[in-house]
């Protein structure tokens, strides 16, 4: 089966789940030739050079990535044409007959969103999902400090960052994937997400809320610490309809050493 045919199967499967394909989004081939014969599929949170190396080594030449390959949201290569890092990555892809295809917008359109479900599973929160709001988890009451420590241990998260009083009691958590961090409000105690702009949103709200005597908290896991696990969900889903192809998950992993 060619990479093109695999993607056609994914589109058909999505359609059968009620998700119509929308052109013009992020989910396109980013590198390699779509007519390449697929020997195996690797899903990953982000197709870093290291992930591509591991995929090639494992014989998984179709890489299904959630985040970009070429350092910007739309994988535009303008300005990269002469960049040695970009060129080395493209050469590696060509030399190893890899194909990179992005699965972002339509993954988030699935219900449940595998990127959120994957984080919840990794965090051990699945059983606490609120029936009313798929992003809300009602955890046994704890403190912000204990919650953050438990998350860091569980995920092996070195770059985890927290806003809020560590002694604050928390229970209602909103879990957002990657950069899609839900807005902090009076409805919940703490927002957990990947990464977020430090102005124009939750950061000043959390600081203001604490000063106004209505403390709210935010835990930033890092983008890959937030979305890698969801691509394991995607690998599991692909196995349900792409039989006969080896399908694996290659985590991009925690990029930060501290």
């Amino acid at each position: 089966m060619t990479a093109d045919a695999v993607v056609a199967r994914i589109k058909a499967q999505l359609a059968s789940q009620g998700i119509a394909w929308r052109e013009g989004g992020r989910d396109t081939f980013k590198a390699g030739k779509p007519e390449t014969e697929v020997r195996g599929i690797a899903t990953s949170g982000m197709s870093t050079f290291d992930v591509l190396r591991r995929a090639a080594k494992a014989g998984q030449n179709l890489v299904v990535t959630h985040e970009p390959t070429f350092y910007n949201d739309r994988d535009l290569t303008t300005g990269l044409e002469a960049d040695p890092v970009y060129l080395a990555k493209q050469q590696f892809i060509a030399a190893n007959a890899l194909v990179v295809w992005r699965f972002h917008d339509h993954a988030h359109a699935m219900r449940p969103d595998p990127l959120i479900a994957g984080s919840a599973r990794a965090l051990g929160w699945t059983a606490y999902a609120s029936p009313a709001d798929p992003r809300v988890y009602v955890l046994p009451a704890t403190t912000l400090g204990e919650l953050a420590s438990a998350i860091a241990r569980r995920l092996g998260d070195r770059g985890i960052r927290v806003i809020g009083d560590p002694a604050m009691k928390v229970s209602r958590v909103v879990l957002g994937p990657g950069y899609g961090v839900p807005a902090l409000s009076s409805a919940n105690d703490v927002v957990v997400g990947g990464e977020i702009g430090e102005s124009g949103g939750n950061t000043e709200y959390a600081l203001d809320a604490a000063a106004a005597g209505q403390p709210k908290a935010m835990i930033m896991l890092g983008h890959m610490m937030s979305e890698d696990h969801g691509m394991q969900e995607v690998a599991d889903w692909l196995r349900t309809f792409l039989t006969g192809l080896p399908i694996g998950f290659i985590p991009a992993g925690e990029p930060f050493s501290i």
Binding site: M46, F49, D50, E67, P68, Y71, N72, V85, G194, P255
Partner: peptide, 10 residues
């Protein structure tokens, strides 16, 4: 993480 971080990793 999908811009400068990925570039530095690569």
């Amino acid at each position: 993480e999908w811009e400068a971080v990925e570039y530095v990793l690569d």
